[in-house]
Design a binder for these strands. Structure first.
Length: 186
DNA sequence: CCCTGATTCGC
DNA sequence: GCGAATCAGG
């Protein structure tokens, strides 16, 4: 693939939108994020919002203080490219039944989770890596699925959301904003 | 380990 | 001009 006018335009647009190089590369296809970054630099549109100065210890004599800044003659506006859609038919809501005693994530009652989150989880579970307990690492989602008493039990295993113990989808249901939880009388 | 952008340098 | 390899950081 080469940098056609069109592709360059997409690159510029996405870069200015704040998309990451990898995202752009993925969108364009046929190029790696390195290619995108390289192109970005060649185009001279590096800093998009203000990149911190890169203190380069390399022996690089200070060049003439460039006072030239790129220009944006394109008053582009109103751009709502794409939105994450979750057309999940929501087949059967899976319920992981975790017996007490396990240092595992609490399974929130399905009736308190947003349909969005549930759908997302369902979807994620389809592509889960289905790891066993011992296969879990610090960057694999530790969300349990299924009944530990049966063979139909595994851990999500998808890449975790930095820091958290679960993938994005499961983080979503794990950390509820504790909303309509007023059901205090029990 | 996952990711990010920045830079270098052979092609 | 291109972009993989590498670097530096989160």
């Amino acid at each position: 693939m080469s940098w056609t006018d069109e592709r360059v335009e997409t690159l510029k647009r996405m870069w200015n939108e704040g998309q990451s190089a990898s995202q752009i590369a993925k969108e364009l296809g046929g190029v790696t994020r390195n290619a995108v970054i390289g192109k970005v630099h060649r185009l001279g549109l590096s800093n998009r919002a203000g990149v911190a100065p890169t203190p380069q210890p390399t022996a690089k004599p200070a060049e003439a203080p460039a006072t030239e800044a790129a220009a944006q003659p394109e008053p582009e506006a109103t751009d709502q490219p794409e939105q994450e859609k979750a057309p999940i038919p929501m087949s059967q809501a899976r319920r992981a039944i975790i017996p007490a005693g396990q240092p595992l994530p609490p399974q929130p009652s399905a009736n308190e989770i947003s349909p969005e989150a549930l759908a997302k989880v369902s979807e994620v579970e389809k592509g889960a890596k289905k790891l066993s307990l011992m296969e879990l690492t610090e960057r694999t989602c530790k969300w349990p699925v299924g009944d530990p008493a049966t063979d139909d039990f595994w851990f999500c295993g998808l890449p975790v959301q930095q820091g958290k113990p679960y993938c994005e989808a499961h983080v979503g249901v794990a950390f509820q904003p504790m909303s309509s939880r007023r059901d205090r009388r029990r």
